[in-house]
Each structure stands twice: as structure tokens, then as C-alpha cells.
Amino acid sequence: MKNILVVKLSAIGDVIHALPVSYAIKETYPDAHLTWVVEPPAYELLTMNPCIDEIIRFEKKEFKSIGGFLSHYGPLRRRIRQRSYDAVLDLQGLFKSAAIARLAKAPVKLGMCNMREFSDRISKPVIGPNAGGHIVERYLDVARAIGCRVENVVFPLTVPECEEDLTRRIFSQAGADMGNPYVVFAVGANWPNKRWPTESFAALGDWLYEHRLIPVLVGGGPVDEQRAAEICAQTEIPPINLVGRTNFKQLTCVLQNARIVVGGDTGPVHLAAGVGAPTIMLMGPTDANRNGPYGQLEHAIEADRPCRHCWKRACPKGLDCLAAISVQQAEQKISALLSEKSTWQ
């Protein structure tokens, strides 16, 4: 195959889960030109991926009005049709991704197993051996369907050296040295019921300081900034607060060098698992078998509730879902990981 188009637009965690598809394509077809269509929030993430030859930004917000659609549809169509593709892989499986896949000229158009919003009318769903398994493997089943051998599952991300140097300076300005052992807390998540209570993060942060580990907060956006402020206010010694202070490249560097990363089912935590950091994921509404830290599912801690895995963005019962996960459970998991030599290498 000479030209392949991947359509995976959002969200951050989902785009991270799809990254091994790009490696599988290049592993099998090293001379292929790989084009990826993505929405702006995940664009910077893809710029770190050496397996992608061309990135097309899909400005979804520009298509919401009739005027915007009329002015942006033509340029998008021309950009996509600059090439004739051997295959299109719709890894989003929604109406918007189907509309993009439809624009492309290709004899083969495939999608993932659980396509929705009539996207299966454009791309044929691939019901592979992992249709009931982890989302990373579901995406890879689509790559396998175009002949990709998946000998290694790799999240291909490279942080530029200049960004590594800048990350160390940001870390230092925040009051710590990256050379000292630290544990990252991903404090937020898009779904309210994927967020561990701030008082739990605070208590765990104090416990870490007692064990000579520095807690470091990461995240972005007003909600995460408010949660970080609450965590700092509730601790005896405030953690290092990097919320809103790093871009994707710098965040990746922070995660790569962490002893452990702790957080909910959210982008930074999936990114941590992808770059090989020991990752503890606190889960409730979503299923670890599908969405847990890839390659480290044994590190997931699921809320002990009969209604877990409900897949609802907000709890219909009004429960604070992850409050069922105790600080002691997190401490025990961290202690077990720290006892393993690999976490200190």
C-alpha cells in the first residue's frame, strides 16, 4: 500500500489509543504515505508521531453554521482528494468521521467494530478477535484487516530535546527538580464521575511526601485549575502544581520521567501508560477491560459499586462514583509498584 488515510478526530484519550495503528502501518508498509485527519485539540499530540507523514486538521466548529460549512467544505474536500488512497481507516465511527471518509477516493474503507450514526454505511466494520477487548486492540484489528502485522504494540511519540529542556525549567520554576522522584496526579477528566475527590488526592499527596516522593499535579482548563487549588489548600505541604503550565510535548516529558502516574480514565493517564510510565487508573463508570491503562490493566482500581461500568457521563443516582476508591487502596497499589525495581529505573 502506498497511501493510507486514518480518520481519528478526538478525544485526546481516544487518539492516544489509536497511535499504535500508525506504528503497525509503518512496520508493515514502511514506504506508505500515512495521512491522519484530527481535530485541533489533539493536533499537537500527532506532531510528536514520526510515523505520520501528513496531518489534516478538521476544524469541526467551523462547520456548525451554514456559512462556515459552505466556506470550509471545499478546501477540506480538495485537501483530502489531493491523494488517491489505497485504504481509509475510520477509527472514530461517527457521522462526522464518515463524512470525511466519504470524501476520500479509496477502494477499501474500513471502520472499527462498534460504529455508530450510520458510519457503517461508508466504511465496513471490522469485527476482529478483539471486538470485546481493549480499545487499543480493537483499533489494531482494523490495521490487521489491511494486512498489517502487529508484532509490537508501540505508541510512537518523540519529545524534541528543546521541549525536554524547557520542561525541566518549568519544573524548576514550580519548585522542584525533575531528577528527584515524583508521582504525577492527573487531577481532572471530562466526565465529572471520572474524577477522584480532591480530598483523596490531597491525602495521598501528604502520604507521598512522608515517603520522600513529590506529588505533581497536571491537567488543563478552568475545572482542573480549580481542583488543583482545592488539593493544594487541603494538603500539609502543597504539591508541585503544573496544571495549565505544560503543552503536550512537555506533559509527555513529565509523564515519561515519573515514578508513577495516578488518575482517572482520562487523556494524560492513557498517555502515561502509552509512554511506559507505571500507571494507576481509578475507574468507575468505564470498564478497565476496555479502557484501562493499556499493558497495565492489573494497575486499574475500580470503584466497588454494583452500578460500575454504567458508561454514563454523570451519575443518575447522584453518587460521587470514585469516592468509593479509598486513599488506602491507592497507597497499597503505589507501595506495590515501588517495590518493583522497574519503577526506579
Rank of each mutant, 00 (worst) to 15 (best):
M1F: 09
M1R: 01
N3Q: 10
L5Y: 05
V6K: 08
K8M: 03
L9N: 02
I16S: 03
A18V: 08
L19P: 00
T35P: 07
A42P: 09
Y43I: 04
E44F: 08
L45Q: 01
L45H: 02
C51R: 13
F58S: 05
K60Q: 15
K64E: 15
F69M: 02
H72L: 06
R78M: 06
R78S: 02
I80M: 04
R81S: 07
Y85P: 06
V88R: 05
S97N: 10
A101M: 03
R102H: 14
L103K: 11
A104P: 02
K105D: 08
A106R: 12
G111F: 03
G111M: 07
F118Q: 14
V126T: 05
V126M: 01
N130T: 14
A131T: 14
R138W: 06
V154M: 10
V154E: 11
F155T: 09
F155C: 03
F155S: 06
P160Q: 05
D165M: 10
F171E: 00
G175R: 07
M178F: 04
G179R: 13
G188C: 11
G188S: 15
G188H: 11
N190K: 13
W191I: 07
N193G: 12
T198W: 13
F201Q: 12
G205F: 06
W207R: 02
Q234L: 14
I237Q: 12
P238N: 01
T252V: 12
H270Q: 07
A273I: 02
G274N: 04
G276I: 09
M283F: 01
P285I: 07
D287P: 09
D287L: 14
N289T: 15
P293R: 13
E298L: 09
E298D: 15
K312Y: 02
C315N: 00
C315S: 03
G318Q: 05
L319F: 15
D320S: 15
C321Y: 03
V327N: 04
Q328H: 14
Q329D: 08
K333T: 08
E340T: 10
W344Y: 12
